[in-house]
């Protein structure tokens, strides 16, 4: 937020992207696939962070935006036979429209009521997916056929099932969203969002229509989450109602809290960390929700600023 060293911040973010690019060539197959998935889910976390970290609005319903993208893209391929870019756009559009509607309604409330209202809308969305099981596959979900997951660019066609194509597509989406997030939080608009988080009443008295600003943030956040969901459907070929359940509203909250709310790189770090903790422990126990639960409590009790938030507070004040 300070008017210092924009170059340093951009250099750091480009460095992270370059590192992820380089990792594609050295990682063993298993971790290569896992990291592709983590990057897509980190986009989900970044979308969540936009609202929770910067505007201070704690939603318990972001699974609906993720799954709006997931089903919007997935069903467009499965039922309508759309191409990959068109399906991706359909996913984004579903997410943006849903976010607009939910935002207009839910932003009439604040605090605890906002949390409960978003959770209830997400529950309705989840139940609707179950109710229209003939279309959505219900809790079994649907597989997006491999033959349809092909990206045609001019004369070359890239199969999204190919690990390298998949990794690079995930990285491309991740990079775009990361740089957009960085630009937004460093912009005038980002400053207004933080002001709303710190003191909404005061922000109003500086001439800002805080409702419109918050609504815009909900739509941006919802659209980013939908992008993550659409990419997930197209890259990993599965849509299922699990992704709309409450649990998938809690996970991005956990990832962001762990990595550091209101930090641009925190969502990636939180997602990466949590995914590997679950991956490693799942060798010993199937009770990964137990770890999620304990992590949530320990974070709010002892580590509310998360990994990057603490680093920023102690050592690197310039971190965006």
């Amino acid at each position: 937020m300070k008017e210092v060293s924009p170059a340093k911040a951009y250099a750091l973010h480009l460095g992270v992207i370059a590192l992820l690019f380089a990792l594609s060539f050295v990682l063993p197959e298993y971790h290569h696939g896992l990291l592709a998935r983590i990057m897509v889910l980190a986009v989900f976390a970044m979308g969540y962070n936009m609202l929770f970290g910067y505007v201070g609005l704690l939603s318990l319903g972001h699974a609906m935006f993720f799954s709006a993208g997931l089903y919007g893209a997935g069903l467009a391929v499965i039922h309508l036979g759309w191409s990959v870019p068109a399906a991706f756009a359909a996913g984004l559009a579903c997410g943006a429209l849903l976010a607009l509607i939910i935002g207009v309604l839910a932003l009439r409330t604040s605090g605890v009521a906002f949390m409960i209202v978003t959770m209830m809308f997400a529950q309705v969305f989840y139940l609707i997916i179950l109710y229209f099981a003939s279309w959505t596959g219900g809790d079994q979900g649907l597989v997006v056929p491999q033959s349809a997951r092909v990206l045609v660019l001019g004369s070359t066609s890239l199969g999204l099932t190919n690990p390298t194509v998949r990794y690079m597509s995930a990285l491309a989406l991740f990079s775009i969203v990361l740089l957009v997030t960085l630009a937004v939080v460093r912009s005038r608009y980002g400053r207004v969002l933080v002001a709303i988080r710190e003191n909404e009443e005061r922000t109003k008295m500086l001439g800002y229509d805080t409702f419109s600003n918050k609504l815009a943030a909900v739509v941006v956040s919802g659209t980013i989450c939908a992008a993550s969901g659409a990419a997930y459907a197209l890259l990993f070929g599965y849509v299922g109602s699990t992704f709309a359940s409450v649990q998938y509203s809690i996970l991005p909250l956990l990832w962001v809290l762990l990595g550091g709310a209101a930090t641009t790189l925190g969502p990636l770090i939180g997602t990466l960390f949590m995914y590997y903790v679950v991956d490693i422990t799942s060798g010993y126990t199937s009770a990964y929700l137990l770890i999620v639960g304990i992590a949530l409590i320990l974070l709010v009790l002892f580590f509310p600023k998360g990994i990057l938030g603490t680093i920023r507070q102690r050592w690197l004040g310039w971190l965006p």
């Binding site: 704690l58 318990l60 605090g111 605890v112 949390m115 809690i250 909250l253 809290l257 929700l289 137990l290 999620v292 639960g293 304990i294 992590a295 949530l296 409590i297 974070l299 709010v300 009790l301 509310p304």
Partner: peptide, 13 residues
Amino acid sequence: EATIVATIGMLYI
């Protein structure tokens, strides 16, 4: 807000 997050943790545990 913190207690909601914490009770979600309790739920899972």
